[in-house]
Design a binder for these strands. Structure first.
Length: 661
RNA sequence: GCCCGGGUAGCUCAGUCGGUAGAGCAGCUCACUCGUAAUGAGCAGGUCAGGGGUUCGAAUCCCCUCUCGGGCUCCA
């Protein structure tokens, strides 16, 4: 008997009737067979030993595909659990899914024990033994009740089975659904006898695995709920080959070198004095200069784009935040109150209520709309100590915050214009790889359905008009507003969330905002919240990491270092410095009290864009030696005028050059 | 906040069995005046995060606190 199956490329293939996916792979080719880890049969991932049926559409999943890597990682997690249970009998094991770049597994060790870093080495060795033993993964299925019996000593597994069995009618989250479906559970058994609840598929045998490394141990709450037990999580990374693993580890090293906290220290930009408190940075002269350059550029462009800059204080009476609703919705995120002269004051967690008061300071006409208020507003948020992370997550931050008040019919156009402005500004900072996310109404929210629909539609329209790629995150909006989040990919492919645009449905109402329309009726304006950089601190961190500290010339604290070869070149060096300063360049001179090589090294470590060396021949010829950041070899004998012409265009940020209307 | 791991000179780190603190870089002084990523010598620099305990004796062992890092949760 023979059957016919359809391959991934659409061709038909006749195979023996008891042919497995694995045998099919072998029939197609040796290489494919070697690289296969699972099969996709009629769109569903299955084990390689699945017997094929007539008419099946079969795709062999290889180890170097995204799905293949997921399976490798998942199976490696399984081996991790096996190793831990071997080493600590009586361990309860919970879940062990693949994640990006790797996998984890959550455990509860007997006697409330915790893993230490040394344990990771022992576990890893045991895993390598299991892998060397070439243990097979064999799937079998049980009824719910048999499953509960099988895992009678594993409370987390039982809970997964029970929860999912109890809610079988409703569609489940993938993760919670592991190994449980349609009144049955599936388990995988190794040849050593280790059993794990798992939906699969798995690789056929542990020998397929091996390019992995355990990375770290961490605490993680069971099912992500901080009211439930905290388990011991082990993270690992796993790849299709040792080469891919090595590349990944190199990438991690690269990311470490770019860590903005490290660069901040090395380049003398900022630090976090413990005396001030966690999450509260101080900016040193060079760091403050960079901030100022960023802010100045942004302010100029905002003015040109029709924004009006405002200024508001850092504190306000509780009344303001009662009206705005922050004390109702967000109190846990605010700093505790201060009592003064019978009133209660809070540090502001957001600038919007104050901007609204500026709007409300007098009657507003439709002729003034859209009214775009803009501020570098410093806000304070009580972030839990464990979440602080350098400049990327702080307790005191400066938002490049804008609130745009417009008439309802202006909303779609205003949002489109805004999104274009946001993208143009980010591009001016040398970022170009964006994606957006449209977050819709969450369960816990306020407002009328039609308002949410209108606002969400306007955001959707703006996304389409701007041409940016986007996805919809259902139910991820703020309680008061749907929003667009702009994410960017940095130079080494990491995603960062930056800008956020929200249509506020609540505050205009809470504050009773109005404008007089052309027909002399009073109407409620729409309000858009927007932070473009997100926060200046976080954006600063992103830029540092994106550029690995080598900021664009216009943002570099020192743009040119001038190095006379000997003392008697000082006069000429000063002339060069003067010429460059006339252009507005930020220049420093490193005189010859140290060897030239040493001074060059210093300037290079400071990531100065242009190191200019002047010696005998330069004095007589009116030239400079240019050692540009990133170039392989220095350039001798460049005419000063030519050097000036070359660098002039890059000394200041490039205007956005669009009108946005 | 919770779990794990750290905290020794401004920075990066060493410090044996518990015996009283060390290097490189940076800093300062002097000498060197040099053509593209480290000139040499000397000097100075520490309440070993803080507090408590064990001990004849603690950077080292124990407890508590603070703080930093990695995660979890959180991010209106």
């Amino acid at each position: 008997m023979e059957i016919s199956v359809v391959l991934a490329d659409g061709t038909q293939r006749t195979v023996p009737s008891d042919c497995t996916a694995s045998e099919l792979a072998a029939l197609i080719g040796r290489r494919l067979s070697q690289d296969s880890v699972a099969a996709k049969i009629n769109g569903t991932l299955r084990d390689l030993n699945t017997v094929l049926s007539d008419g099946d559409r079969v795709e062999i999943v290889t180890r170097d595909s995204d799905q293949g890597r997921e399976i490798l990682r998942h199976s490696t997690a399984h081996v991790l659990a096996q190793a831990v249970v071997d080493l600590w009998p009586g361990t309860h094991f919970a879940i062990g899914p693949p994640i990006s770049d790797g996998f984890y597994y959550d455990f509860e060790l007997p006697g409330g024990r915790h893993f230490s870093d040394e344990d990771l080495e022992r576990i890893e060795s045991r895993m390598r033994e299991i892998i060397a033993e070439d243990q097979t993964f064999v799937r079998s299925e049980y009824s719910i009740s048999d499953g509960l019996r099988l895992f009678r000593d594993q409370p987390f597994k039982r809970e997964i089975i029970e929860t999912v069995a109890g809610q079988m009618s409703e569609p489940q989250e993938e993760e919670l659904n592991e190994g449980v479906e349609e009144g049955e559970i599936s388990v995988y058994r190794n040849s050593s006898g280790f059993i794990d609840l798992c939906r699969g598929p798995h690789v056929p045998s542990t020998k397929v695995l091996g390019s992995f490394k355990l990375m770290r141990v961490a605490g993680a709450y069971w099912r992500g709920d901080e009211n439930r037990p905290q388990l011991q999580r082990i993270y690992g990374t796993a790849w299709e080959s040792d080469k891919a693993l090595k590349e990944h580890l190199l990438q991690l090293d690269e990311a470490e070198k770019r860590d903005h906290r490290k660069l901040g220290l090395e380049l003398d930009l900022f630090h976090f004095p413990p005396e001030i408190g966690g999450g509260l940075p101080v900016f040193h002269p060079k760091g403050a200069l960079i901030r100022q350059l960023m802010e100045d550029f942004s302010k100029t462009e905002h003015r040109k784009a029709g924004y009006q800059q405002v200024w508001t204080p850092h504190l306000a009476k509780s009344t303001l935040f009662e009206i705005s609703g922050h004390l109702g919705w967000y109190k846990a995120g605010m700093y505790p109150p201060m009592e003064m002269e019978g009133a209660t004051y809070y540090l502001k967690p957001m600038n919007c209520p104050m901007h609204i008061l500026i709007y409300k300071s007098r009657g507003r006409s439709y002729k003034e709309l859209p009214l775009r208020l803009f501020e570098f507003g410093t806000v304070y948020r009580f972030e839990r100590s464990g979440v602080l992370h350098g400049l990327a997550r702080v307790r005191g931050l400066t938002q490049d915050d804008s609130h745009i008040f417009c008439a309802p019919d202006q909303l779609p156009h205003e949002l489109t214009r805004l999104l274009k402005f946001v993208i143009a500004m980010l591009m001016a900072f040398g970022l170009s790889d964006f994606e957006a996310e449209l977050s819709t109404r969450p369960e816990k929210s306020v407002g009328e359905d039609y308002e949410w629909e209108e606002a969400t539609a306007a955001l959707d329209h703006a996304l389409k008009e701007s041409g940016i790629n986007y996805t919809v995150a259902h139910g991820e909006g703020a309680f008061y507003a749907p929003k667009i989040d702009v994410h960017l990919k940095d130079a080494i492919g990491r995603r960062w969330q930056v800008s956020t645009l929200q249509v506020d449905l609540q505050e205009p109402q809470r504050f009773g905002m109005e404008f007089v329309d052309s027909d002399n009726t009073r109407k409620r304006p729409y309000m858009i919240h927007r932070a473009l950089f997100g926060s200046v601190e976080r954006f600063f961190a992103i830029l540092l990491e994106h550029y690995a500290g080598g900021l664009p010339v216009w943002l570099s604290p020192i743009q040119v270092s001038v190095l006379p070869v000997r003392d008697d070149h000082d006069d000429y060096a000063c002339q060069v410095v003067n010429e460059l300063e006339k252009l507005g360049a930020r220049v420093e001179m490193l005189s010859a009290d140290e060897p030239l090589g040493s001074r060059i090294r210093k300037a290079k470590l400071d990531k100065v864009p242009f190191v200019v060396v002047v010696g005998d021949s330069d004095v007589s010829e009116g030239t400079v030696g240019v050692n540009a950041r990133g170039s392989q070899s220095p350039e001798r004998g460049v005419q000063l005028s030519e050097f000036i012409a070359r660098i002039s265009p890059d000394l200041a940020g490039k205007p956005l050059g669009e009108s946005f209307d």
